[in-house]
Design a protein around this nucleic acid. Sequence first.
DNA 1: GCAAAAGTGTTTATGTTACACCCATGT
DNA 2: ACATGGGTGTAACATAAACACTTTTGC
Lengths: 232, 232
Amino acid sequence: MNGPMSYTYKYPRPALTVDCVVFGFNGTGLEVLLIRRGVEPFVGSWALPGGFVHMDEDLETAARRELLEESGLSGVFLEQLCTFGDPGRDPRGRVVTVAFYALVRPDQHPAKGDTDASDAAWFDTAKLPPLAFDHGAILEVALERLRGKIRYQPVGFELLPERFTLAQLQGLYEAILGRPLDKRNFRKKLLAFDFLVPLDDYSGGAHRPARLHCFDRAKYEALASKGFLFEL
Amino acid sequence: MNGPMSYTYKYPRPALTVDCVVFGFNGTGLEVLLIRRGVEPFVGSWALPGGFVHMDEDLETAARRELLEESGLSGVFLEQLCTFGDPGRDPRGRVVTVAFYALVRPDQHPAKGDTDASDAAWFDTAKLPPLAFDHGAILEVALERLRGKIRYQPVGFELLPERFTLAQLQGLYEAILGRPLDKRNFRKKLLAFDFLVPLDDYSGGAHRPARLHCFDRAKYEALASKGFLFEL
DNA sequence: GCAAAAGTGTTTATGTTACACCCATGT
DNA sequence: ACATGGGTGTAACATAAACACTTTTGC
């Protein structure tokens, strides 16, 4: 004859947070958005944006809220990564965190000072500072996941502007996979799936202009649902 | 000048549980281990084994503890799947669950009555009863994951006995992928990676005996670390 | 001796890799 | 006119797919 809440409130509970690994592409390398902590513990250290989950919000909602509050980002690609719950990961006590990773397009990048957190900055994934808590480990897992995912799902487009050149796309793949790709083979393969739409517009560079393309999500979804596989 | 614990204890917290999707292979089809609930809510419904996370234990530790307590299983393959935190998923209040999936070999299957939970039973994944909470959705995600994973990581061996025939292995792949495979091509491909060791022993069937093989994990790890890919 | 599953190679089609030159623009 | 990145096709090679018959055992 217990009330409906009695069972779940009998025991002490871990605190629950969300943390986001936010990836961006600067045209050359893959970057991550970090926040400088203004409070203990780890004051002054760089950390992943994140915070406590509210009692009435979904996990993804919490992640999007923190992303907005701490870095002014909204409407980005966001996916759950993994949950980290080592009892020693937070010196304040037991804190379990659900990690997400986000992909943001250059035009979605927060302007400097767009955030209310003291500092936010992009770091090259190859030159990361020491991070607070176990955020370094979380970031590693996120990188692994991105490298795996980009090979069989067209997530790369979430890191490029709406309209992009094939050279930009190739550069992105090379940056994430960490190896050079053959230009002709890359173009051949990607254009063979026909979810890449050539536009009648060209990038104005210092040299010969490159044709712009955009990603036709609807066409991709259609193919994907017909049991089609992407593969690099 | 707050004590180190004050910040994290300021707010109400969701309860935190773990749930496990336990897969087994009966020689023909893929099965899942379910527990019949003995308490409200959902008394009498089938549910995934799982329970509350203790304050001093890791998430995986909690999952293994629950697996042992509720189904007598230990030493199985176990991997984190995803975390489910919809505010409405548990009628008792806010409960966030970290889902895991486990793969168990036939010889690890709990004997009937091995569990202290009232009932535990294996169900064919094609004929599942309605499940408590959002466990049906969790199970779907686990199935998806297994289908994806088996194609590029040798997890199939976690579902077969130590020594198995190639026909058993092929049957397992067919059951998980849900389509028939060509016998000759399957054998050719798997034997080409040489982490499958042919033994000098044969299965005693009703007909011509089949050669037994075992999986050489060390050889596989060696190949995998040299940047080798499995791919069905 | 027959029913049932085990075992075995070759050919064809498809996809992947390697590779070099001309083109269009800005300075 | 030259420097810079954009754009294009083909041949060799490797991998995947399709396919049928003989062998061994229990009954």
